[in-house]
Design a protein around this nucleic acid. Sequence first.
DNA 1: CGAGAACGGGTAACATAATAACGTCTCCAG
DNA 2: CTGGAGACGTTATTATGTTACCCGTTCTCG
Lengths: 160, 160
Amino acid sequence: MPITPIASRPHDHSHCVHSALSEADTLCAQKGLRLTALRRRVLELVWQSHKPLGAYDILAVLSEQDGRRAAPPTVYRALDFLLENGLVHRISSLNAFVGCVHPEHAHQGQFLICRECHAAIELEQKVISDAIISSAKEVGFIVEAQTVEVVGLCAGCQGA
Amino acid sequence: MPITPIASRPHDHSHCVHSALSEADTLCAQKGLRLTALRRRVLELVWQSHKPLGAYDILAVLSEQDGRRAAPPTVYRALDFLLENGLVHRISSLNAFVGCVHPEHAHQGQFLICRECHAAIELEQKVISDAIISSAKEVGFIVEAQTVEVVGLCAGCQGA
DNA sequence: CGAGAACGGGTAACATAATAACGTCTCCAG
DNA sequence: CTGGAGACGTTATTATGTTACCCGTTCTCG
């Protein structure tokens, strides 16, 4: 019986946003990191939905909605901070960013991206990463970072 | 005992290029596809090394070495043709292209990219893709396309 | 306290990647 | 011989990402 992940079904998304932000607050406080207003706002925007968001989309919102004079470096610096500290992930096949579901521990997940609703579901399956590590080992390759990005149809979009 | 793949050790690379090109000739002849001079040249350039090559790198060579007046669409069209017919792969984390080692059958491989020598080793491990498909299935997700790109150190670069 | 380093962030310009839209030529099927 | 499709040239534009430089605030240490 497959368990439909939250990203693939209707839910009170403001709860996702709030818990992500407060978790970020806690983590940054613990590690002595500065989650400045800008960084927090960018994180909030990334969490606006479960769809990966482009840097320039964030830029547009900052300029239009927040009236902040923002240029690319502003956004990229905030994103770099969030990436370094595991608060967001980068989806390189989309050049886009998505909130990390488990920022409390370092990891790099695998991503299932729905071609219909564009939501990204984060997985963290040891089976997958182990398969990659051991296959690499067979050819003498030492794995340092993995990018696993899968496109397909999520549970919610298969009927339609 | 790990088997070092050809991309990670010294070899007569002109042989790689020649066999890739003649294989492309054969395949296109079989399928009734037109491997035009431009497309063949782009394929040759992609095979110039085992390192993924950017579209604009190809563009530069076409302009400088071949004296051909080339603009981005020229290159992208050739690359699209080669991609569609499985002669090259796109490495989306690098925005670059690499020759396909097994163009004779449709597939999407996994790629091991060395951070030192930048060579890309193509794998085609059922273990990995099966792990992905079954993990996706557990959350009700149907996989249509996989992107697996791994960064690390290849066998040849581990001593240095 | 006060000098200076470290940091966050603004600004301009540039670099790289990809696509849109339109025109011309060629080749071959009818 | 013609007309339509495919390949490719040309121009322009959009999307994405980076570099360099500056300024003000904050943190730190003598």
